[in-house]
Structure formats: C-alpha cells, structure tokens
Design a protein around this nucleic acid. Structure first.
Lengths: 201, 201, 201, 201
DNA sequence: AATGAATGAGAGTTCATTCAT
DNA sequence: TATGAATGAACTCTCATTCAT
C-alpha cells in the first residue's frame, strides 16, 4: 500500500526536501512569492518539476512551512538571548538587539514574513500574535516587579514590535547596514523614558 | 486631435476612468493585487476589458495611481488635524488619532499600501519616507522648543510610525473595531513618558 | 437620404482623405502592414479613430488603394521614360534606369508592394502580371523588328523583372545607395549578350 | 537535472517537437505567419497550447528555425546536384533545375521564405546573401576558366537568383505546374547568350 | 465632417499541477 | 525516488471596428 504523504523515507529524500526548502527560501526572499514559479525553485534546486510535488502538496504549502520554521527560529533565538537577563530593560535591550541581528542575518526570511500580508493574511496575523505573546509574558512579569508601568500588555507588545519592525526596515533592509549605535540608544531611551524631557527643577 | 495618452477628454470618459479607479481600490483592497485580474475590475465596473487599457497602460499603473492618491490624501488629512495644535504632545495625539480614523474609514486603502511590500518595494519605501518627513519636521521643531529630548529625529519618526502601524493593524484591521480608549491612552503615555515607572521618593 | 459611401464631398474631406493615404503609405512602408494599427495611422494623421472609417471601409481597403495607385504611378513613370527611345536595348536601359530611380525615390512604396506576398497574394500576382504585360508588348515588338531573339515573351518579361527586382533590393534597399554604374552596365551586358564569352577566333 | 531550455530530453519529447515543426511549416505556408496563431498550430498538432512553449520560446522562434532549416536544405540540395557538373553552363542548368524541383516539392517552405520580407527583413537578407555566396564562388571560378565574362560576380549572382525566383513564382507557384521545357530553355539561352540576336553576316 | 469612447473577440504567453514512465 | 512531458485554464494586453454625440 503506497500513500503519497509527502514525507521522505530515505536519506536521499530528506536531502532533496531540504534542498527544496532552502531554495524556496532564497527565491521567495528575492523575487517574492507571486513572482516565483515552481520551475524557478526546481531548476535552482536541480530537480525535476515533478519532484517538487513528491514533498509538498502545493506552492502555498512550502511557503507555510517556511513561515512556521522561521517563526520558531526567531522566537527561540530571541528567547535564548534574553534568558540570562535579570532586569526588564536589560531583557528588552537584548531582545531588540537579537531581533536586529537576526534580521541582518536572514534578510530573505524577513522579507518572506512581510509577504504574508498578501499571501495569507491569517498567517501574518498568527505570526505577530505568536511573537506578541512572548512580549506580553515578560511585560506582565515586569509590571509585577515594578519595572514597568501598569500598561495594557498587548498595547505595549504591539508598540514595541512596531518600533523594532520599522527601525529594522529603515536601516537594515533599506540601508543594508547595521542599526547605528546612536539609533539603538535613542530607541531604547525613547521606549523606556519617552519623548518628553523630564521636569527640570 | 486624438492621442491615446490615457486621459479622458469628455465627461463620459472621466466618469468611466473614475469608475475604474474606485472599483480597483475596492477589489485590490479585498482580494489583493496579485489575485485581482483586469477582468475582475472591468466586470465589476461594468465596462469591456479593452476599456481599461484606454485609461491605464497596465494593471501596475492603476495601482501606482491609487497609492499616490492615498498617500497625498492621508498626509493632507493628518496635516489638517494637526495644524491647530500648539504643543508637540497635543499635535502627536491629534496625529495618531487622525491616522486611526483614516485607517478605519479606508480599510481598503490601508491594505493597498501594505501590499506594496510585494508589488513594488520602492514605492513602499517612498510612501514611508514621505510620511516620515512630516514627522521629522515636527520633531525637530519640538526639540528646539524643548518639548522633545534631543533624539535623532529619523529614529523617532520611524518609531512612532511603527507604533501607529501596529496598533492600527491590531485593533482596527484585525479586530475591526476602533482603537480602545485605554489602548490609545497607554500608547500616548508610552510614547511620551516611556515604560519605566518614574523614580518614587 | 445619407449613405456613407466613403467618398468625401467637400474640400476639407478630400484633404483629410489624402492625409490618411499619405500617412498610411509612410507607416505601412516603415513598420509593415501587420504591425501597423489604425491608431498609428490616425494619430500620425492627426484625426480621430472614427474618422478613418468615414473614408475607408477597412484597413485592407486603404492598403489596396495604395497598391493600385503606386502600380499605376510606376508604370506611367517607366512608360514616359521609354517613349522617346527608338531601339529595344535603349528602351530597356531606360526602363531599368527609371525603375531603379523610382525605387530610390519611393522606398516605402516598394516595401508596400513586397508586403502583398503576405497581405494579399492575389494582389501581388495582379501587380506583377500588370507590370509584365508592358514588357511583353515591347518584347514582342522587338522580336518583330529583329532586335530580340524569338524567346517566349512571358519568360523574358519575368526574367527581366526578376533581375530588376533583385538588383534594386540588393543595392538600393539593403545598401541604401544608388545602383553602381558598373553593376548597371554588367547587368545590361548580361541581359543582352549573356554570360558566355563570345567565340574567339 | 532539468533545465527548461526548450530541448526535448526523451523520445516522446523529440516526437512532439517535430510534430510541432511540421505542423507550423504547413500552416505558415498556407495561411501566412501573421494569420497563423499558436492555437492553430497546437490544435492541428494535437497538443495543448502550453506544450508549444515547452519547445519554442515564441512564435517567432519556430519560424526562425524553419527558415534556417530550409535554407540549409535548399543549399545542400542544389550543391549535391551541381557537384558532378564539369562546365559552368552545365552546373547552372542543373542548379536552376534543382531549384525549380525543390520549390515544386516544398511550396510551403518557399512561401515561408517570402514571408520573411515582413516577418524579419534581416533574416530575409541573410537568406539571400547566403544563397548568393554559393553563386559568387562558382561565377568567379567560371571567370578564371574563361567560361564567364568578367562580370562583377555579386551582380550576376543576384541577377540569376532574380530570374530563378520570378520564373518559379510565375509557373510553379501561380500556375501550380512544372516549369515548361520551353521556358526553361529560353531562360538558359537568355542567361548565357542574352536577348540580342547575334550579328548576322 | 469629425470626434473619441466603447466594444469584445482573440492574441501570445505563463504556470501550478498531473501523470506515465 | 525521480523524471520531464503534458495539460489547460487563466492571465495581460491589442486592435479593427462601431456608435452616440
């Protein structure tokens, strides 16, 4: 009995499947989901067109898998960098820092996520809600420890993600550089102590 | 003298062209640029396929025109609402408020902008840089008046846009509601005085 | 009672019709019949699309009219140049000469004729048969006067037309030059006394 | 490894590609390049539209391939027939004869070449220059052996091609018959000894 | 006489997917 | 497991022609 459940059974099969994933990541990132054809992927991966459908039911499926994978990767990466931090501010600094590094190292993956706005809005939503939930947890913890004002955690989570997203876009993606030291410091100061100058006395 | 420069010369022509623009706005907003076909637009607009090409050289052109139009509209809308404000914080509050209202009233247009990430990244960049320049001006003015710390204006501009973008997305687009009063207030407090509780004494 | 018989009734109408003919000649010559659109013609002629159909029932009709016109023109032009000649060879020399001059002056018209191979093979045939009939008449006359061997006149007519056609193509059209003096003389010698060297004694 | 370079990799593929070429030859010949659609070709070849583009990047490409193929075929065919000839006149007689036979056997291919005037003038030029170069070689050889007057070889080459072309067109294509014996003989006599009667004494 | 908006059939081409081998 | 040929629906875009004004 042979059911094509799209799961590779041999070492060679696993290798082929990974090759396809890597190639898709590269091309989706460069040309965008809609401009990428299956032929593009199979050609660059060095396999026949038919082979693609041995491992993925459709074009959309390989995209979904990439998003899930990178969502997990990014969250794990940030988590690892935050763990050793003891203060809320320290953790956030490390978190932002980790995020910017990750974007820099994975420009393609970053691009792939943004494409979800058009490819699959629900997936886009899922990705950010998932990411937000990590923030919410640490914000609530900080509130209890008196390290953060008693804001609505969801509001702050999305606010912080928005800041990270836009700064990363502005400098890493558009400028193709690191986040300048000064920008990072200003952003942190902004986030923790706001725009208004303190009252002088 | 008749040159097919895609500009209507009669009242009837103007009406048809506008009908096409309105229809495109609606369908792009609902189905997304890539899932929208010219047939979709012309059918819903009630004209023949060929008629589309009398007024727009291509699908991309009508998209561009929509983005330009809405970019101007949004900026004008915000500007009008800010003008009467005398303080930096007041102006920002009004600005955010205006932005959220505008997004609520033009969900389709908001969606169209986000699509530019894939449709035309350069246009996407142009849109946000244009928007940012307004922020930069008012931030710099506020710095001189002592109403804002001496941050890099570009950093703050993108930070604020990110906050607005993500909150609008989270509540107006995903939840299909207004921005809750509490969320708005928390966001303003966050932006102007930061996450950290002031030093108690 | 108003019947649109495509004939202009006023001076203005005649002018418009001629403008269309001239423009069509130019564009057909440059871009070819199939690559030329009615819009191309009306735009360059400076009239509205609808105006075209006031004067010509279809694209094919204006083409036909051009071919008929130029067929008459070319034959009249050659005839005028031949009339004063008294010998067969003299007349043929003048005829070739006139043909080459005409081609040079009317590259577009020459091109238009060649297009008939694809546009309307029957018309193409008609054009050359009409042209051949002039040759036949003068060849038969020459045969009676002992100035030409007793060849089949049709054969010689098409042979001479073939020579003219190919030399004109080779130098005037491809090289965009005059027929070189030497080429012309060689061609005449070839036509009248053949390739073989006479018997030496 | 699979690259879609339009070359078939299996026997089945080769068969399909050839079927398309044969069908295109037939339909181009009958209806003309511009009146032939890809649907015409694929329908008659019994394959899906998409299949066409697996083997030919565009309509123009299959046309080009046909022209190149037939150019080689015709030249090879004539060359084979000429080789055994020892005299210039004998070779030319055989050459003309071969050409007429070939046209008769491949009316469609002949038609396809003529279409190049409109489809691709450069290709048309290439075809005749290539053909002419064979003539030039044998004319120059004949001049050295004293079998041909010292004419400019290019002039004679195009003159001879013109004669062949027009006679073939007149009798084989238009009349759909063979070249009549008498026409052939008159043409040869014309070419080798010219129109003028020798001087009587 | 002239305009220009509108039509709609049909063109060439692409591509996700299926299937025989 | 892998191949690559084959499919056919859908796409964007063109253009000769008609028609209301």
């Amino acid at each position: 009995m042979s059911i094509n459940n799209h799961q590779p059974l041999t070492k060679k099969g696993i290798k082929t499947r990974n090759k396809l994933l890597e190639t898709a990541e590269k091309i989706f990132g460069e040309k965008g989901y809609f401009e990428t054809s299956i032929v593009d992927i199979t050609q660059m991966a060095g396999v026949a067109q038919g082979t693609f459908y041995k491992y993925f039911p459709s074009k959309k499926d390989i995209y979904d898998e990439l998003v899930l994978q990178l969502s997990r990767d990014l969250r794990a990466y940030i988590k690892r960098r935050i763990e050793e931090q003891t203060t809320f501010e320290g953790a956030q600094r490390q978190g932002f820092s980790a995020f910017f590094e990750w974007v820099k190292e994975h420009r393609n993956l970053y691009s792939i996520i943004q494409q979800a706005v058009l490819v699959d809005p629900e997936l886009y939503k899922w990705y950010y809600e998932k990411l937000a939930s990590g923030f919410v947890t640490s914000i609530n913890a900080a509130k209890e420890k008196g390290e953060c004002k008693s804001f609505d955690a969801e509001t702050i989570a999305f606010g912080l993600m928005g800041i990270g997203q836009f700064l990363g876009m502005r400098w890493i993606i558009w400028e193709n550089s690191d986040i300048p030291e000064e920008v990072f410091e200003d952003a942190m100061e902004f986030a923790f102590r706001g725009l208004s100058p303190g009252k002088e006395e």
